[in-house]
Design a protein around this nucleic acid. Structure first.
Lengths: 209, 209
DNA sequence: TCCCCTCTATACTCACGGGTATATTGATTA
DNA sequence: TAATCAATATACCCGTGAGTATAGAGGGGA
């Protein structure tokens, strides 16, 4: 006889307690990433983050090792979203350009989200040597994903024969930057901005003959 | 009877001393901007900057008010170079697209230079309220300059009728980002990179019919 | 029932770094 | 020659913030 969900017991089972813990960890990360994005990593103290959740600093240390690890987890979340966006869109049907368009749109939307923004705003300077190496490796993987797609497009004729490396950097730059200026509470949704940017990048500025 | 320049006196005149002072100030700024770019503003102490010049911290304070002012001077240098690039290129002959191309190239080259890089890497978070306001105002002026150029191009038919604001952000983003990844000691010169990026942005990815 | 494990807080330590008080040297000026 | 000023250093103060030692409260299991 299953328990009615409307009458939850105050006694928590093993899994429930683990889920609670995970939830709290996530809450810390979400609070931290918002403050990092708003004020910068160095200008945000863990006391500030704790206060914004109504808890104290040692509680944060109970869930996460140290300040750098908080940042790394945030950045990792962002990078995972980005990789995911790239991989799922890449598996869709269509020619190279169509798939690239799809990837860029997803990519851009992630960039305007909290964790994506954190990826753009976090320079290698903020991380320890090992952290920075990991960070670079993951970013490189995403870059290679995009480059592969551009190569596909060039091969099938849907993309002009451009310098692949330079094209990837140019696209990434334009899109990354949106994480800097886009205001989530503004008039334009992330989706609208993403679509506009991608259209501009694909069509270019010069009028089509 | 003019002094032969080959036999400089060890006694300095008024102007010479002022020039010396200015030179030293510049040297501090150059050293600082390099370290800020390499390690980040907060991670760079003025002791570090001083040490890299073989001087001590109070000497820096002798030439500049405080740490924020050091950063503001660096950023201002960069913004001045950027404005200059925009204004001179804008005054050239040609249709809107040609002038925009010229502006973007100069802009990109500044971005890959020490002071330009500093502009991209410095978020509002690092500055005090007044500093940030000034910073934003100057960036906005440059943005408006670029938008005006895009509007000119649309008006004269050399640029497709795009959303001006979004186009300006997209272009700026792509170019700003080069300040993050371009390695001045690498194989590609700033000029080469600038030209490539601008070509890609203007022509887009889709093959020309 | 008693112990332990989880979660949380208070209150601390300690290093780092921005900024300053003060002394010194040497050149400029009265 | 005395007074002054620019340039520089040494040695300090002190706030901030990362990280920790310790304690207490309360549920779960033996």
């Amino acid at each position: 006889m299953p328990q009615p969900t409307a009458a939850p017991s105050p006694f928590r089972s093993r899994e429930e307690r683990e889920r609670d813990r995970e939830e709290k960890r996530e809450a810390v990360l979400r609070a931290a990433v918002r403050m990092f994005n708003a004020r910068g990593f160095h200008a945000t103290s863990l006391d500030d983050v704790a206060a914004s959740l109504g808890i104290s600093k040692p509680t944060i240390y109970h869930y996460l090792g140290n300040k750098e690890q908080v940042l790394i987890e945030c950045v990792t979340r962002g990078l995972e979203l980005l990789s995911e966006a790239a991989d799922t869109a890449r598996a869709q049907p269509g020619d190279g350009l169509a798939r690239l368009r799809s990837v860029l749109r997803s990519y851009a939307q992630v960039m305007m989200d909290d964790f994506g923004r954190c990826v753009v705003r976090t320079g290698d300077e903020f991380l320890s040597a090992e952290g920075a190496a990991l960070f670079r490796a993951r970013k490189r993987a995403i870059d290679l994903s995009v480059r592969a797609l551009i190569e596909d497009g060039i091969a099938d004729g849907s993309i002009a024969p451009l310098d692949v490396r330079m094209t990837a950097f140019t696209l990434a730059g334009a899109i990354n930057w949106s994480g800097r200026w886009h205001d989530p509470d503004g008039a334009l949704s992330a989706e609208q901005v993403a679509d506009s940017m991608v259209d501009i990048l694909i069509s270019g500025l010069a009028p089509r003959g």
